[in-house]
């Protein structure tokens, strides 16, 4: 197991390095530059040249990249020129908002997806199965940004149960409860698609396991149905689901871009969209790096959990 952990852990390094190189290259390739974006109507050649010199953008790209990489290794992510503050301050603040959103969504995804999948499998061909299967398919087919807009129209504007956007009230007292209140709609909108995926996978995986001989043996030994399902069948079925949950984390982080935009959630997804628009390379680099590392680590964790659950993987 230790060798497996070390081997998988080391793979994280080239992956994140590759991501930074790719993002840097893409930011160079897309047309337009930060100086012009900042200057707008006043982007005369003289103004652009002066500003590029002040922002150190007049140096060759490879020097810019190597300098950036060297600084990042020492913990210096540079200063954002569209926000005039250290990149690290900004991305940590924004990332914690995204983690709160995506983490809550992940919780909803897992609880809802596993529960629905198990019930559908146990009640195969009965109305519960049909209801959850249709529900999962609908959840899977609806884009999260559209669902987000429908949620706002129904639950915020129509019923007035939840605020329309933001993470907390613009003034007055605020605490964990008010944040939770703002979190319900975006987290649910974000979670439903992923929950559909998990539910379908859990169902098919459970059905497969429930047909196995050892399940029949366990049942015939007189073990309660619930115990058979949860301890014998589910434990084996979930091995297939865990790595997909890891992949869904990537989906949730990606989907957060849309949901954050619609709900005005101060997360890193919305920050990246804006930063790409203003060609703020340092901010994009820092943000993507953080998201990539998180994604890689969570997938690593999912693989390790799977390995812990299934001896065939860690030995193979």
């Amino acid at each position: 197991m230790r060798a497996y952990v070390v081997r998988r852990g080391l793979q994280v390094i080239p992956v994140t390095f590759g991501v930074t190189l790719l993002v840097f290259a893409m930011m160079l390739l897309i047309p337009g530059d930060p100086a012009r974006a900042i200057l707008g109507s006043y982007a005369t050649p003289e103004n652009v040249a002066t500003l590029e010199r002040q922002l150190a953008l007049d140096r060759p790209p490879h020097i810019q990249y190597v300098t950036w990489l060297g600084n990042v290794v020492t913990g210096d992510f540079g200063r954002s020129y569209s926000l005039n503050r250290p990149v690290l301050d900004e991305i940590l603040e924004r990332f914690s908002a995204t983690l709160l959103l995506a983490g809550t969504a992940l919780l909803i995804t897992v609880v809802l997806g596993l529960t629905a999948g198990i019930i559908a499998a146990v009640k195969q061909h009965r109305w519960q199965d049909r209801a959850f299967t249709v529900g999962a398919l609908v959840g899977l087919s609806i884009p999260s940004f559209w669902l987000a807009m429908i949620f706002i129209v129904v639950f915020a504007l129509g019923l007035g149960w939840f605020p329309t956007s933001g993470m907390r009230p613009a003034f007055g007292p605020s605490g964990p409860l008010t944040v939770l209140h703002h979190l319900v709609l975006p987290a649910t909108a974000l979670a439903l698609v992923a929950a559909g995926v998990i539910a379908r996978l859990t169902r098919s995986s459970m059905l497969e396991v429930l047909r196995q001989d050892y399940v029949r043996t366990a049942t015939s030994k007189g073990i309660t149905r619930q115990s058979v399902i949860m301890r014998h069948a589910f434990r084996n079925a979930v091995v297939n689901v865990v790595p997909v949950i890891g992949v869904q984390v990537g989906f949730l982080l990606g989907g957060a871009v849309y949901v954050e935009t619609v709900f005005g959630w101060p997360g890193i997804g919305r920050m990246l969209v804006t930063a790409i628009g203003t060609r703020d390379i340092l901010l994009v680099q820092g943000g993507v790096l953080l998201v990539a590392i998180t994604y890689v680590l969570i997938n690593l964790a999912a693989d390790l959990v799977q390995a812990a659950l299934d001896p065939r993987i860690r030995l193979g």
């Binding site: 915020a156 504007l157 605020p163 329309t164 956007s165 933001g166 935009t261 709900f263 005005g264 919305r270």
Partner: peptide, 16 residues
């Protein structure tokens, strides 16, 4: 800061 124009309108309508 409410980037999405529709979200801005929603906020006005909901009193935010």
């Amino acid at each position: 800061p409410i980037t999405e124009s529709q979200t801005r309108v929603n906020e006005l309508m909901s009193g935010g």
